[in-house]
Amino acid sequence: MTRRVFIASTLLAGTALTLLPQGEKTHIRVEPFKVIETVQKVLFPKGLKAPSASEFGATNYLATVTTHSSFWKDDLKFLIFGTELLMKEEPTFLSMNSEKQDKALRDFVNNSSKGENWVSLLLFYTLEALFSDPIYGGNKNELGWKWTQHHTGQPQPKKMWAEEIA
């Protein structure tokens, strides 16, 4: 198991964890990712043809890319902050049915610009997960590309982050 897969699976399994991007300590408690995973399911549910966020690995993607030094730390902080804000405003969000979650999320967006910015940012990273190369842990089985009949450019990356190929 590589370090990043370990991190991703640990995050989702529910253990508190310390991530160390580039030697700088950023503490992520487990709950934020649980909230994020739940919200992503609402943002991108299983459609008639569209794959769901869980199917294409939206949260797994985020868990992978947030560990890299190129991930914007302000975005990471805001992603976590938004989960706290949502939990404050909608404490029962995680246990609601999907219809109620959708409604709660729409209220959350309409009630504050922070809420709207947070959902927009999380949606951005959800779409990044849907359409990025599967090497980053999202777009599982190229589900995003297949769904939209998109042909990616060749060659595809053999390594993440444009690293040199030995």
């Binding site: 890319v65 890299h68 190129s70 991930f71 990044e128 359409f131 990025s132 190369d133 090497i135 980053y136 990616t152 450019g153 060749q154 060659p155 595809q156 990356p157 053999k158 993440m160 982050w161 444009a162 690293e163 040199e164 190929i165």
Partner: peptide, 14 residues
């Protein structure tokens, strides 16, 4: 070394 990796070439400071 090159690929058509949108994340690395277009979305991050790599």
């Amino acid at each position: 070394d090159f690929s058509k990796d949108e994340v690395a070439y277009c979305k991050r400071d790599i």
